[in-house]
Design a protein around this nucleic acid. Structure first.
Lengths: 320, 320
DNA sequence: GTGAAAGCGCTAACAC
DNA sequence: GTGTTAGCGCTTTCAC
């Protein structure tokens, strides 16, 4: 019994000859270790929970792939849950994952409700946030610098001579929009001594349709309509471009637009979309790697890692 | 001990007053049942495995969402694995899932290698195939009728007066392309007494770029180039349309194109894409529902369900 | 209606 | 190097 356990687990304290005998028996009988029993005895399940708003969203799907790839690399499996950003569901999922004795959790979400943070703090297993802001709480997390990314995007538009910059963003309650990206937008304007005008910022909900709608709203400003648009996601940026084209405008000649995320969509439109690249796959991969480090009690430089971003210039902006 | 188990599991054989006492204690202590121990004792984990080629592919992400939603409905969790269609990896994943004592498995893949089928046949838990062809093996599966879908698409093009129809497809080794869609393509031609011409079918690999490339190859046929294209996936269809537009052609005036799947991409292009709708989300949902039926030993009409398809007419084809 | 006890298939001391 | 043993935290008979 114990010896079998040893060979199954690669414990070196087994004589090669017995190891071989055991291995042969295993092969012959088609024996397959029961991971549940193993989990009960060892208190490790080699399974981690992943909570994601919506896996059918291309953005999170990419992230999930990054997570899964490094999970596989470290012999973990993933229990994948969709939260739809619903706070109760988030808490419920967290609890069922903990009940299933996952070794750790990776969480993605728009807004960290404080009840959730409380649960996170008392979790018996480590939790890392992926592409999810952390604010004052000191939870492990991996992100890019959204404020600086937005700043860069807006600045590049300003550098092209624009005085009015449209900003089409997701819900402002989400810190990433309401604080980070918005702050980057404003600071770029300030830096260039440009006035902030509320009518230039329009809310969307991340979707293509909301991007179109937002652009059409901007278009109603007539002569005051900004001729340069920063959209909070690529998908909204596509909507913006099509709204513009449908109205008979040329991109980038009449209007410039810049997106955010660099999803695969960015190259599937004409003109191809200039966009801020947020490395989703990498964020997922790094999050999972960070989690494995915590689980293995490896040395960790910092709990809060910031990945680099950059702007990928394509054809929806005029070349600098 | 046993009584606690009874109240946790909602067993009716408990006096209401004791039930309440137990419940109070549970709440007070923050007791959370250990699903691993429960799984070991009951031989049920309320977890199902999902093997998917690549979750970052919009197509599978949608399917996965359908699966997860009905899984949640029936109180199951999902262990999600990416196979990259690699036969060894598929077998390996199957085995680790079985080791983790999942209650069932949902499998998606392009080609069912016979080693895999053998493993499926001897699996201790039920396996259902989602959007994955079954051929002679009699495994539970849910699909649409790909042959008839392709037939309908090509026929609609023929009805618009085209004599030469381009077919841009994924790898022919995959039964869905090489047998089903291809057969539909040919039968539609035959039905209209149109000759089959090998040069009109071009292979892609499902991606946007491969769609562009395939269309450019077709364009080299010059006067012989088909003016109506059926693309095996929406993403390739987008590539086709852009290749056409880049070459100065008008869609649908000069060329008509029709896609397959009706992913969200279809409405994110100008002209909007006419496409065969394959209800990915539904296929996922129905697969999972089928699995729950098997697990609950419910009455099942048929193991091999075929969901309906239809053509969504948009602007990349001329209106009939 | 409730408790006692066996046992699910492993791991982890601990002896030898 | 290998075997023995005691759990891991539950469910499930089986008595009472």
């Amino acid at each position: 019994m114990a010896t079998v356990s040893r060979v199954v687990n690669g414990n070196p304290n087994v004589k090669p000859s017995t190891r071989k005998k055991v291995q042969d028996a295993i092969d012959q009988l088609g024996y397959r270790p029961n991971a549940v029993a193993r989990g009960l005895a060892s208190k490790k399940t080699t399974t981690v929970g992943v909570i994601v708003p919506d896996i059918s969203n291309i953005f999170f799907a990419d992230l999930a792939r990054g997570i899964e790839d490094v999970a596989t690399m470290y012999k973990y499996n993933i229990i994948l849950c969709n939260s739809d950003q619903n706070p109760e569901k988030e808490i419920h999922l967290l609890n069922t994952l903990l009940g299933k004795q996952v070794d750790g959790i990776i969480f993605m979400g728009g807004r960290l409700h404080e009840d959730l943070v409380r649960e996170f703090k008392t979790s018996p297993v480590p939790i890392v946030l992926a592409a999810t802001l952390n604010q004052d709480y000191d939870l492990p997390a991996v992100n890019i610098d959204y404020e600086s990314a937005a700043h860069d995007a807006v600045k590049s538009l300003i550098d092209h001579g624009h005085k009015r910059i449209g900003f089409i963003t997701g819900p402002l309650e989400q810190q990433i929009n309401g604080e980070k990206k918005f702050a980057g937008y404003r600071s770029a304007l300030e830096e260039a001594n440009l006035p902030f005008d509320e009518q230039n910022v329009v809310l969307g909900n991340y979707t293509y349709d909301s991007g179109m709608k937002a652009m059409n709203q901007l278009l109603e400003l007539g002569a005051d309509c900004p001729r340069a648009i920063f959209a909070g996601t690529d998908e909204m940026a596509l909507g913006v471009i099509h709204a513009l084209q449908d109205a008979g405008h040329q991109v980038p000649q009449d209007f410039e637009v810049i997106g955010h995320d660099n999803t695969r969509l960015a190259t599937m439109i004409r003109p191809k979309l200039t966009t801020v690249v947020q490395p989703m796959y990498d964020i997922g991969a790094v999050s999972m790697r960070l989690l494995t480090k915590i689980l293995n009690k490896e040395e960790i430089e910092t709990n809060d890692v910031t990945l680099p971003h950059r702007i990928e210039e394509r054809d929806s902006t005029r070349s600098s």
